[in-house]
Amino acid sequence: MVALVWQTVVMLGVMPARLFPGVDRVVATFGRLVGNGVLPTHALATLARLAVGFALGAIVGVTLGIVMGRSRWAEDVLLPLVSVGNPIPGLAYAPLFVIWFGLGNLPAVLLVGFAAAFPVAVNTWTGVRAVKPIWIRSAIAMGAGERQIFRKVVLPGALPAVMTGLRLGLARAWRVLVAVEMLTSVPLGLGWLIFGAREFLATDVMLAGIAVIGLVGLGLEKLVFEPLERLTVVRWGMLAR
């Protein structure tokens, strides 16, 4: 369907063909770039960065969220910081991170983690606070101690919200990463591929790169989160599907 619309526009010739390649050319380029390993290499580099950065952000975010949910004191102090930091686009920090950490992988990974941590923290906090008091009471009545309550009641009880946070965090991480690769001159990566292709007006390469970016984003959602949710919160009936 997309292809159809696209091709119609191309045929109408409203834009110069050099800047607006036909579907056939994009598909051909896609095939060529996959065949000679260029796209997979760039995609792998980007995914590796995403994995490390997101893992960092998830660990920090979940920890912060739990601490905020468990301690009034931490909540009072951390919540204002998190809620002011949350709406600032992560990318706005990119130049600053470049100045602080130089070019290359380090600022990119750190920025991805930084951007992902906010939604994870906010949602984890909500989840921990939303754990039903009756679950805690039941656990106490059955002789559970502080640690056991935390491990066996608070953590699973907060899981639906934590999942939502991780999902939002990953989406955000992905958006930031693609853009930040254009700014930090990483050696390899999809963002970098697109940005570099601009120099040569290689719009077919750019579109092929964009297609991969869309596919990866869709894949992360379908292949990582949906199965994970089906196994946990959907199975437990805590989330309607």
């Binding site: 693609v178 254009m182 999809l190 750019m206 984003g217």
Partner: peptide, 25 residues
Amino acid sequence: RFVLPLVSVLSPIPSLAWVPLFILW
């Protein structure tokens, strides 16, 4: 039926991935 597939393919692409292309266009 016509629009939904378009939207679901395009919406997961981060907007900033389009920047270089938009600059050209």
